[in-house]
Design a protein around this nucleic acid. Structure first.
Length: 198
DNA sequence: ATAGCCCGGGAGTTACATCA
DNA sequence: TTGATGTAACTCCCGGGCTA
């Protein structure tokens, strides 16, 4: 197809006046080709033979883009129009790209699933630890009450509590802070891992 | 520097073939 | 027969190379 002829023929008077305003320009509808003449070779669309496809695939395996010279050579070798070869390579690149995107998607999906699984595991661990902490606090309370015989504000009981807190919570300094991240992550279940990359 | 032409490629679409 | 799917071919647009 003659590109230049094609281009000038397709420019509408409207687009010549205000090309920027033509945001959603309706595409020209292609005519049906019931045995008629098309721009390629005058034949209806036909499937390439397996042999032609094999050779094209072989060449595509070597390089995804063809130089003009090689395209012509390949076309005459296969008895095709050079444009057919160009179109085949173009469509093949699209299929290849879509396949790659699909594979990338699968990889990300399984990684995501793994992260979600780990999140669940950590959450249940947090629940268990919270239960343990609760039990420990009750135990401290009981011991404190027994020790001072009802004087709840004694120096001993508050000291014991402090010591227990430090012992149990270590570097976090307090369980409110320790569980802040975990609690916050409930806002967006399953997607919070995305924040790592944002 | 720049305007115009030519060419190839990407993206999106359409028409046709094939198959369940 | 019909709807889904695959694919050849088309349209539109853009960017790069060349040249006058």
């Amino acid at each position: 197809m003659d590109k230049q002829e094609d281009r000038t023929a397709l420019i509408s008077p409207l687009s010549q006046i205000a090309p920027q305003q033509e945001k959603a320009k309706p595409r020209r509808r292609r005519k049906k080709n019931k045995g008629g003449v098309n721009s390629l070779s005058g034949f209806r669309k036909r499937k390439l033979t397996q042999e032609q496809v094999d050779v094209l695939e072989l060449n595509f395996g070597n390089e995804h883009k063809l130089e003009s010279e090689k395209k012509d050579r390949l076309a005459s070798e296969l008895g095709l129009d050079p444009r057919q070869v160009a179109v085949w390579f173009q469509n093949r690149r699209v299929r290849w790209k879509n396949k790659k995107i699909g594979q990338e998607f699968s990889k990300l999906q399984s990684a995501h699933d793994g992260v979600v699984l780990e999140k669940c595991r950590l959450e249940s661990e947090v629940i268990k630890l919270k239960e343990k902490l609760c039990e420990a606090e009750k135990e401290i309370q009981r011991l404190g009450e027994r020790a001072d015989g009802g004087a709840s504000n004694s120096p001993i009981s508050s000291l014991t509590m402090e010591a227990m807190d430090t012992h149990l919570l270590g570097e976090f300094g307090g369980y409110e802070e320790a569980f802040y991240i975990a609690d916050n992550s409930y806002n967006n279940p399953g997607m919070e891992w995305m924040n790592l990359y944002m």
